[in-house]
Structure formats: structure tokens, C-alpha cells
Design a protein around this nucleic acid. Sequence first.
DNA 1: ATCCAGGATGTAT
DNA 2: ATACATCATGGA
Length: 293
Amino acid sequence: MEHGTIPLEDLSGGLDLQSTLESGQSYLWTRTDHDSYGQTGAYGGNAWYETVADGEVVRARQRDGVLEWQATTDATDLLTHRLRLTDDLQEITRALPQDPLLDQALTAYQGMRVTRDPFFPCLISFICSPQMRVPRIYQMQHALRQTYGEPITVDDRTYYAYPTPARLADTTEADLRALGLGYRAPYVQRTAELIASGELPSTDIPDEYEPARSHLTQYVGVGMKVADCVCLFALDHLEAVPLDTWVQTAIATHYPGCDHGAYPDTSRAIRDRLGPYAGYAQTYLFHYLRHRF
DNA sequence: ATCCAGGATGTAT
DNA sequence: ATACATCATGGA
């Protein structure tokens, strides 16, 4: 394994790796000191996180003002891309409106970045998310990797890549129910099939945000909320605001003028209110609201 | 035991 | 368009 460090001193807004990887954005990283997946109780400020990306094992941890990595090849570009290290967090914070709730959330998790996941794993992760707690979503993605992922052995340890569309298309509803996906099992199988067969290829996704969101809702198990998650966490649409139950409640109480009942109307109103980095605000609010109690 | 979780779908109005 | 029941699973 090669290893190296990425300096963080000159990074605008800094980095909080733990918050970035444990705030329910990406379900593709596992903390190596976890005996079970998705547990965020113990402090892990300097913990290693690992994933399989582009067929390579990548491990990263934050300490002493650097992002340290171990990988089979140089992971600098990969980490810079996946963790959005070039996002100007100071400018993003400046561009967001000033209000007490948002200020508290931004201050509490300074350095947290929106992750940039690969499309298919992100899509499947959030198809698994409805009516599920964050730790269980981690658990389901872990089960999918262990069961259907391509194994990679490095230094006597075996890792599993996220399964391909073809591999998941080749499963059955019963197979996936056995992994604990519940009623989302047929959604995952059908969506994988739509992509693998070319019936609804991901290469047809429009570049613009709202058309992209509309395209995504054609997949099975994808409504507006899940589509917004994929737009934000995989498709570079930083204005996308996933309206989950936490954020909807926050909008109703904190931005009542933006609450229009219907998803598309509230979505447009909150984006008009928060601006081009609305998705960043959503990510901070979601993490903050879920953890302040 | 009962309730609830990063909602989506099918059906009836 | 909008309202409502239904959908698995596990942890509190």
C-alpha cells in the first residue's frame, strides 16, 4: 500500500472528516474501529475510514492538520474529488443567509463537506433509506457489498466493492429481502435492472437540476426526496434540498414562508431562500437537528 | 407491547 | 391534483 498526506492548512473552511463521513450523506465508507456498522457513539476524531473506489482500496484519516491516506495507488485526486476538498467552504458559508439556526449548525460542524459519491451506489443507498434510521442504511449497504460486491484482497484482507447494476439486476426480491431490505427489495432489483438493461440508462440524465430530478423519479423506489439526495450527493447539484422529515419540520417552524405543503413548491421556495448552496445548508441542518438532542 | 424511522407506491376521490 | 392505507424490519 502506498501512503501520503494532503495538507489542510490552506483548505478554505477546513475539514471535519468524521462529520463528513458519518452524517448520513455517503454510506460507502466504514470506520475501521467499528465492530458494527453505522454506530456513531464513540469518539472517532482520528479514526481510519475505508472504502473501495474505482476498484482500489482507499483508507483515510484526519490528524494534525493533514488528511492521511493509504491506498494501492495515489489517492490524492480521488479524495479531493469524493470529499469536495476544492469547495470554497468560506465562500459557501458567506453566500448562505444569516439566521440563528443555520449559524448554529454551521458553527457546530465547521469543516463538514458535502460528499460526492458515485451515481449508482448513491442511488441504491437512498432507495434503501425510506422509513429507515441512518445506522440501518449503513448496515444494508454493507450487506449488499459483502454479498454481491467484487472481492479485492490486499495484504491478506478481503474488501468488497459496491455491486454493479448488472449484479444487483441479477438478484431476486427474495434475495434482497433476506438482507433486511424489507419492502425496498423489489425497488433495488427493478432499478438495477432498468439501468443494467439500458431501458433507463444513467447516461441519459440531463445536466440541469430539475430535469435531472425528474429523470431520477422514473426509477423504481425514487420519489422527489430520494431524487434530491442523488442530485446533491452524486450529481453536483448543490442547490438540491432533500426534504426529509427533519428538514420539513425545520422549514415549517423556521422558514414558515417556504412551507407550501406540496414538495415541488416547498422545494423551490427554500432554494430561493437559501440560494445556490442550499444543499450545503440542508446537510448542516440535517446533521445538527439529528444530533442536538 | 407499541411506536417510529432521511418516503414511495397504489388506489380512490 | 390531493388524501390515505400499506409497505418490512429492528431498536427504543
